[in-house]
Simulated scan of single mutants.
Amino acid sequence: MDLGNEYEWAPPGVDPTQASVARVHDALLGGMENFASDRAVARKLKDAVPEVVDLVWCNRAFIGRVVDFLIREAGIRQIIDLGAGLPTVENTHEVAQFADPRSRVVYVDVDPMVEPHARALLNGNPYTDAITADVRDVDAVLGHPALRRLIDLSQPTAILIVGVLHLLPDQEDPHGLVKRYMSALPKGSYLAASNMLASANPKAQALEAMLHATMGTGFFRDRDSITSLFDGLVLVEPGVVHFPEWHPDERIPGPLATWEELLLGGVARKP
C-alpha cells in the first residue's frame, strides 16, 4: 500500500501522520488497523526492547485472567474498559461473556478509530458497546448515553485501567483519576489497574526512554506509587505483583524474565 492510499482510508478525526498509542499497540500485535507512522514507532520500540511484543501479549493475558476472575469469582457483571485500544483477540467482552453471556462491557478510548472497529467486531452484541472519550474526563465517560444504556452505576461495576496510567504524567494526577472513578461506583465494585515499573532494570530504562522519544509519553513509577493506586480498597490476593504472578494459569516456572518485571498491577474491591 502506498502512502497516499493509506491516508485515503483514515476515518474523520484521525491524523495518520501522528502515531497513536492504540494503533502502535495494534501494530505490535500484528494487526491491520494502523498507519506507517504507527509501524515506525512499533519498530523503534522493538529495536529498544525486542521483547516488547511479548510484553504486550503479557498485558492481554493479565486482562483476560482479571476479567475471568471478576465474572466467575467476584460476581461482577458490568465492566468499563478504559483505554481499551483496538480489538484484538480474547477481548474483554469475549472473556466476560464466555463466563456469563449477559455480562455487560463498555470500551472507552480517545482514538476515534477504536469505536467503529469495536462496533464492527461486536456485530450487534446487545450487551457490549464502545465509546470515544478521553478517560481523563470522568464525567464525560460515566455520563455518556451509550455507557448509561448498558451500565447501571448503582450496581457493582469493575473499572479496568490497564496499560493506561503510565501514559499520564504526575501533573495529570493519575491517582486522583482512579479515585474519581471509584468514588462514583458503589460498594462491591472493583478496580484493576497497572503501571510500568520504574527500576534499575535496563529494559525498563530503554523502553521508557524510547516511549518518550517516539510518543512523548511513558511515565514509569515505583512500587509504592503503584500500590497507592489502590488506597482505600481491599486488594485481591496476591496483591500488587508482576503480571505473570497474578492468578497464573499454571505455576510460574522459576524466576521471571527481565521483561516480565516491567509491569506491575493488581485488583481490588471497594469495601
Rank of each mutant, 00 (worst) to 15 (best):
S154R: 15
L168I: 15
D137W: 07
N195W: 03
I252A: 11
P116Q: 13
E115H: 00
F98E: 08
S37F: 02
S199F: 12
L167A: 15
G266E: 11
V49A: 08
I226H: 04
T132N: 09
A209T: 10
A99P: 02
R104C: 06
P202L: 11
V53F: 05
M215T: 06
N123Q: 14
N34G: 02
T92A: 06
P112C: 03
A130Y: 13
N91C: 06
L177M: 01
A120S: 14
P126R: 12
H175S: 13
V14W: 08
S228K: 10
R72Q: 11
G64C: 07
M210I: 09
T128P: 07
V241P: 03
P255S: 09
G188I: 04
A99H: 05
A268S: 10
D26R: 00
L207A: 02
Q155G: 06
I79Q: 00
V162L: 14
L147E: 00
I161E: 06
A99I: 02
I71N: 09
L55A: 13
Y181D: 02
D111W: 03
L229V: 10
R251S: 14
H247I: 13
P238G: 10
L160D: 03
V141Y: 05
P101R: 14
L70S: 01
Q205H: 05
F35K: 00
A268R: 11
M196P: 00
D173M: 09
E8A: 14
A133T: 05
H212T: 11
G265T: 07
V162W: 06
P186W: 07
H25I: 05
I151Q: 05
A130C: 15
F230I: 06
A96G: 01
L185M: 07
G85H: 00
E208Y: 00
G232D: 07
A27I: 05
A61K: 13
C58G: 14
V114K: 00
V49T: 07
F69P: 00
R136S: 12
T227S: 15
A268L: 12
M182W: 01
A213W: 03
I71E: 01
L235E: 14
R60A: 08
N91E: 07
P238V: 11
N5E: 15
S20R: 01
L177V: 01
G239M: 12
E250M: 09
K187H: 15
P145L: 05
P244D: 01
L70V: 06
A257S: 12
E172Y: 11
A204L: 12
D100C: 15
E245C: 13
P87S: 12
L185T: 04
V240F: 09
L55H: 12
E73Q: 14
M182R: 03
V67T: 02
E33D: 14
S194E: 06
G13Y: 07
E94S: 05
R119P: 01
T128N: 02
